[in-house]
Design a protein around this nucleic acid. Structure first.
Lengths: 251, 251
DNA sequence: CGTACTATTGATAGATATCAACGCTGGTGG
DNA sequence: CCACCAGCGTTGATATCTATCAATAGTACG
């Protein structure tokens, strides 16, 4: 069974056997972190790269006014500041939202990984996609209302999970509490609650036990104006068939 | 006279003579672009890198709902997708807001630049800072009100212009129209107008003839919760003395 | 069976958008 | 040289959306 990492990087080009061995080595030494703990804190000077093997994490900032803003979601296969040259101070923190398995990648291994042209290229692509996602979130914040914002987030996560083959019959891990969703979307927790209900009422989604289920992706996309181009996954994604979703049931 | 580019990259480490020669070569062949034209349009596959030598540009997205969101400002010394491997489709557009002088950097020159360790490093840093700025904007959108958002943008631009030595007695180029500011901050043009008046009334800023003047940076920072750490400019910036600002005058 | 979160609800307040004029200014053609 | 035009800025009135506040209801867990 290939690990998420290999699965993910393969999207950006073929990897030879040597690459795969190297990537397997990366994942060999992992550690567990409980839910809602920090992996790195703002102000730290990161010594190593990190990789999320399983679980759900986020990047976040705490503003001078004391509020918190989540600026990115981390799902299995996502890197944390591999590119970051391991040089500068973190300007944001990274924490877990569910129990995570994380790999620490020591500096020299990072360098060895970069020696493979294919891997280095894939890394660069990954970094570009991260950037691109942040820009899309920015657009979402600025120009989508609460309903579309929430729908858009769910479409994105669905698509990203799908890209690492972690969607099971329309469902994927989604451990965020409503307050955390609010901190992600720039809303209040109360409003998130209401918008969530609306989406449920429309039979578009279902949240339960730390998992989200998309009941009608096509409609959710329309409602939120979701266009996956910014994820740069190539045309071969989006092959999920809405018919395979669990039958909608009256709440 | 050293060009903006050299000035900017030097922040991230020393450059030797060879580097400077190379960077001078980059800037040797530039072209002018009128205000409010596109440099690259979404969907294009960029062939070259670009560098803004003078003028003011922006990255922007047009959402499915027809609205526009500016997701980044480009000032002299800023790169456009140098890292982008010149491979993938643009997921956003880039346009000018004032007349600009732009350098096109052909693929082979990009590669040559990357051969210098110092330059390659500086490029990586620049990319990280870009990312970081986008994240800060996201936090701003999510958790700052209109007044703070506007103030924060002005603080940031002031600081970035200062970093390339393009602030003159508290003033810097700022050609945005109110509608464009609105598209940047996720507000309506009408509201931007009112907030702008408030900031003027507080004697904090002054906009005139495509230039912005910060009358009281210290207060503007407090009001907007501005902390320049995310710009990664190092401690030696922020040495502008508020006392040097033009005397406040009644409207 | 309490305890402590988290989700939900209702009522109200506040911020920002929208709509519709109106004013200014700089450019253009007669 | 002046009248007109177009684009941007400004204003006021009103509509919406979203936040805030304060309870209440669920739920997991010891």
């Amino acid at each position: 069974v290939k690990n998420v990492l290999i699965r993910k990087l393969k999207r950006f080009g073929p990897l030879d056997e040597r690459d795969e061995i190297l990537l397997t080595e990366v994942v060999s030494d992992s550690r567990s972190i409980a839910a809602r703990e920090d992996i790195i804190h703002e102000g730290e000077r990161p010594e190593k790269g990190h990789l999320i093997v399983s679980g759900f994490g986020c990047r976040y900032k705490v503003l001078p006014n004391g509020t918190r803003q989540v600026v990115g979601c981390l799902i299995p296969g996502d890197f944390i500041h591999l590119q970051r040259s391991l040089l500068n101070e973190m300007d944001h923190s990274i924490g877990t939202l569910s129990p995570c398995i994380v790999v620490d990648i020591p500096r020299d291994l990072v360098l060895r990984l970069h020696e493979s042209t294919a891997i280095a290229h894939a890394f660069r692509m990954v970094a570009l996609v991260d950037e691109s996602i942040t820009r899309e979130w920015l657009a979402s914040m600025g120009r989508r209302d609460a309903l579309a914002r929430l729908g858009h987030l769910l479409c994105e996560l669905f698509t990203r999970y799908q890209a690492v083959d972690l969607v099971d019959r329309g469902s994927f891990e989604f451990p965020m509490r409503q307050t955390e969703i609010a901190e992600t979307l720039g809303l209040s927790n109360v409003h998130v609650n209401r918008v969530l209900q609306e989406l449920r009422g429309l039979q578009l989604i279902q949240l339960k036990l730390g998992k989200a289920t998309i009941l009608d992706l096509a409609q959710l996309k329309v409602l939120s104006g979701f266009n996956p181009n910014y994820l740069h996954l190539g045309p071969e994604t989006q092959r999920w068939d809405p018919e395979l979703a669990p039958a909608t049931r009256s709440r």
